Simulated assay, not measured.
Amino acid sequence: MAPEQMAEPPEHGPALPPPRPLDAIDQDILRMLQADGRASIRSVAEHVHVSRANAYARINRLIEDGVIRGFGARVNHERAGKGTSAYITLKIVQNSWRTVREQLRQLPDAAHIALVGGDFDVLLLVHTSDNRALREVVLTKLQAIPEVLSTRTLLVFEEEDAEPEG
């Protein structure tokens, strides 16, 4: 059974157990699955030199412990019709993070949302089809959120995934 066919970790389910230390085999499994989330249990087991049952149990434990949050595809956004990317910083009303986060989650172009410390409160990564669509996100959608005090847009000229290639 491929890892993507296993149970997904609970998003808002029961509380996760306390973090357990990961040994070298767990770390190797994580590196392999980050490079190829579609790797079979057999290939994972062979790569880390354990039985298939052991590999299966370890991957399930990593999922249940919340270490692995899910499996997905790395997308070339430009080839997928989203050729304009930008980081947008937001200053928000104090104590409004949860409200703002829920509204940002509704943006179809949002790729990453982070509450940060420093000169601004939120860092948002968006991928849009073009500059006109980016302008719509910033001027119409973000600035319409009452808790957003100000925004600043940083246009991405080129980007590279830091994760290993599969």
Rank of each mutant, 00 (worst) to 15 (best):
Thr153Arg: 11
Asp109Ile: 01
Arg61Ala: 13
Pro17Ile: 10
Glu78Ala: 15
Phe157Thr: 12
Ala162Asn: 00
His12Tyr: 10
Thr151Pro: 01
Gln143Leu: 14
Val48Pro: 00
Ser43Leu: 10
His112Ser: 15
Ala80Asp: 07
Asn76Ala: 13
Thr99Asn: 14
Pro9Leu: 02
Ala53Gln: 13
His49Gln: 14
Ile63Val: 15
Pro17Asp: 07
Ser40Gly: 15
Lys141Cys: 01
Ala110Met: 07
Asp109Ala: 15
Leu107Asn: 10
Asp109His: 10
Leu107Cys: 05
Arg98Met: 07
Glu163Phe: 14
Asp121Ala: 08
Glu160Lys: 05
Ile63Lys: 10
Pro21Leu: 12
Thr84Gln: 11
Leu154Thr: 04
Leu139Glu: 10
Trp97Leu: 03
Asp130Pro: 02
Arg105Met: 12
Glu64Leu: 09
Asp119Tyr: 05
Ala73Thr: 11
Arg38Lys: 14
Pro18Ser: 13
Asp28Trp: 00
Val48Lys: 01
Val137Lys: 00
Ala86Tyr: 07
Ile59Ser: 02
Arg152Gly: 05
Glu11Cys: 06
Val156Cys: 11
Gln5Leu: 05
Val138Phe: 01
Thr84Leu: 09
Ala80Lys: 11
Lys82Phe: 12
Ser129Met: 13
Asp36Ala: 14
Gly81Asn: 06
Ser40Leu: 08
Ser129His: 13
Thr99Trp: 03
Trp97Gly: 03
Asp119Lys: 12
Glu165Pro: 06
Ala86Leu: 04
Ile25Gln: 09
Ala111Met: 14
Asp121Gly: 10
Tyr87Asp: 06
Gly13Glu: 09
Leu142Pro: 02
